[in-house]
Simulated scan of single mutants.
Amino acid sequence: MADNITLKTYKGGNVNPQDDAIIYETAIPGSGIFKGCEVTYARGNVLHISQGFGMIRGRFFEVYETEIDVRLADVGETLQGRVYIHLDLSNADEPIKILAQAAAELPPLDADVNINYNNSSYDLELAIFTVSSAGLDGLTKVFPTLKAGSGGGGGGGETLTRATSYAVGDAVTAVGAPGWATLVCTQAGTTAASEPSGYSRITKVGDRV
Rank of each mutant, 00 (worst) to 15 (best):
G198V: 13
L146H: 02
P196V: 06
N119K: 13
V205F: 07
E195I: 11
L126G: 11
G135E: 12
A103G: 09
T66G: 04
E158C: 03
S194V: 15
T161G: 13
E94C: 14
S90H: 09
I128G: 06
P144K: 03
G135N: 10
A104P: 06
T164V: 00
G81N: 10
T182C: 14
A100I: 06
E195A: 11
V184Q: 03
Y84V: 06
F129M: 11
K147L: 15
N118H: 13
T173I: 05
T78F: 05
A92G: 05
G198K: 12
G81L: 10
R162F: 02
D88T: 04
A102Y: 07
F143N: 01
T161E: 14
A127Y: 08
T182L: 06
D170T: 13
L139Q: 06
G176L: 07
G81R: 04
L99M: 10
I68Q: 01
V184D: 02
T140A: 05
V113H: 05
Y122C: 10
S120T: 14
G179S: 14
A177I: 00
L160S: 03
G157N: 04
A73S: 14
S194T: 15
E67C: 02
G76T: 10
G135Q: 09
D137L: 08
S165A: 03
S133H: 15
E65L: 09
V142Q: 00
A192Q: 15
S165E: 00
L79V: 05
L160Q: 08
D170P: 04
S150N: 14
A163R: 07
Q187S: 03
T190K: 14
D93E: 14
D207V: 07
A100Q: 03
V75C: 09
V70P: 03
L89W: 00
Y166I: 00
S121L: 02
P144F: 01
I128S: 11
S133Y: 13
